[in-house]
Every structure is written in structure tokens, then in C-alpha cells.
Amino acid sequence: MTPPTAVNSDRTAPPDAELVARCQGGDRDAFDRLVLLHQDRVYNAIVRFTGDRERALDIAQKTFLNAFLKIRQFESKSSFGTWLYRIAINLCISEARGRKGDPISLSIVGGRDREDEADFDPPAPGGDPAAPLASRETQAVVQAAIAALDEEYRAVLVLRDIEDRSYDEIAETLGIPKGTVRSRLHRARSELKARLERIPGTRDGAGAS
């Protein structure tokens, strides 16, 4: 799996349920189609959770490997996408707990790798030449603040505020009551806001809406 650079969803693919059934019957090509359908969203969610593209790619690969190895255990009690997210988030949490105390990565700057920083869009005529870089630096600070949250709060924040998942989907993905989702989200937003308020140059509560 390579880092997605564009939407790779296959609009001609059969529904997930059909592909899963074929995969459970031993059809390897069906699983390849499932990967194409879901890899972008899974990878992007992991990037937001980890704040590091290389780690995200590694976890995404493990996610799909685990899904392939456990595909016969999938019972369609939830959607395949939700099941896949559950695997990904559990791997993210396990990986994060193993990295306690490591420096927070700032490899995500405005959605691009650091190697691409020189290729930022030029400002509009009469605009501030430093604005694009400043915007990307702000995004990097917000990403680092998210990555510094405890795993259980970070997972809820990423799924709700970045991935726009419903409370029901998040509860199902994380295996927790919907009320717990709401309380963790409130705590995550409050902690994120407090972290950003301590950083000079960031707007009050930026990224915590």
C-alpha cells in the first residue's frame, strides 16, 4: 500500500457486503477491491491520529493485513467500514501507548510532507507572502496538539471532528456507550482548546470547534 494521493475509491465496485462474502469464500481479488474502496479514508484517519505519515502508512498496512486475516470473523453486525475503523483505531491506540514519552511529530504541515514545503501555493496579488506558510504552521501546531491528547480522547476527536462520524458510528467503532462518546468528546475539545491557548500565536480555541 502506498500513501493515497487522490481518491482511489472504485465507483464500479460491488457493494461491500458482496465483496466481503466473496472474500470470505477465498476470492483474493475481492479483498483488493475492498482495499481500494477504503484505503484513503482509513489512511487519512490514521494520519490525523498519529500526526506522522510514515507511522500512518505502517498502521494502515497492518490494518488491512489484520482485516484480511480476520475476514471470516466479520459477521456483518456492523458495516465493513466501521469494522475496519475499529481495527485501525485499536492499532493506533496500541501503537501510541507503546510510544509514550516520544517527541510529538510535526511531519504533517497543511496536509503535505515537509519535503513539499517549498511547493506551497503563491499568495494572491497584494496578499501577505507569508500567509500560506503561516497557515500551514498553524495546522502543524494544531495537529501536534491533537497528537498530544490521551488516546481515548484523541480517537473520539478524530472520528467526530475530523472524520465527521456520527455518535452512533463512533460508539460502535470504539465499543463504548454513546454517552461516553459525548463525554470524551467534550473532554477532548476542552483539553485541545487549553493546549492551544498556551501556544503563542494561535487563535483562542483554534481547531476545537
Rank of each mutant, 00 (worst) to 15 (best):
R86Q: 08
Q39N: 08
A67G: 01
A17L: 06
D27H: 00
A96T: 13
L106S: 12
A13N: 05
G110F: 06
S79P: 01
A118T: 13
F31G: 04
L69F: 03
L65I: 14
I71Y: 00
K70D: 12
L106A: 15
D16W: 02
R99F: 08
E115I: 15
S76V: 05
P14C: 09
S107D: 15
C23G: 06
Y43G: 06
R53D: 08
V35M: 06
I59K: 01
G110T: 07
P14V: 09
K77M: 10
D40V: 15
L37S: 09
Q24I: 07
R99N: 14
D121N: 10
R22C: 01
K77C: 08
F68N: 05
T50G: 05
G110M: 07
G26H: 03
L57M: 05
D113M: 09
P14A: 15
R99C: 13
Q73L: 11
L91P: 00
D113N: 11
S105Y: 04
D121S: 14
D16K: 00
A56Q: 00
R114V: 15
E18A: 11
V47A: 07
Y85Q: 08
D116V: 13
A118S: 14
F68G: 03
S105C: 11
S107Q: 06
I87P: 02
S79W: 00
G101I: 12
A60Y: 01
L34G: 03
C23A: 15
A6V: 09
I71V: 12
K62L: 13
S105A: 14
S9M: 14
V47Q: 03
A88W: 01
I46N: 02
R41G: 12
L19S: 03
T82Y: 03
L91N: 04
P4D: 03
S94A: 14
H38L: 10
E95D: 15
F80L: 06
D113F: 08
R33E: 07
L106Q: 09
T63Q: 02
F120H: 11
R53W: 09
D58M: 10
P103V: 13
D116N: 09
G51F: 05
R99S: 15
A56N: 00
T63I: 07
I108H: 05
I87R: 00
K100V: 15
L84Q: 01
G25D: 02
R112P: 04
W83C: 06
D32E: 13
A45M: 14
V35G: 03
L91R: 01
D102K: 12
I104Q: 00
D40G: 11
S79K: 04
A21V: 10
R41A: 15
R48P: 02
K100D: 08
D40I: 11
Y43V: 08
L36K: 01
K70H: 10
C23H: 01
Q24G: 05
D102T: 12
V109E: 07
G81S: 15
E95K: 04
D119H: 13
C23M: 09
I89G: 02
C92S: 05
C23P: 00
L19F: 00
E18M: 02
S76W: 02
I93P: 01
A96L: 10
G101N: 06
F74M: 01
N8T: 14
L34W: 02
K70P: 00
P15H: 04
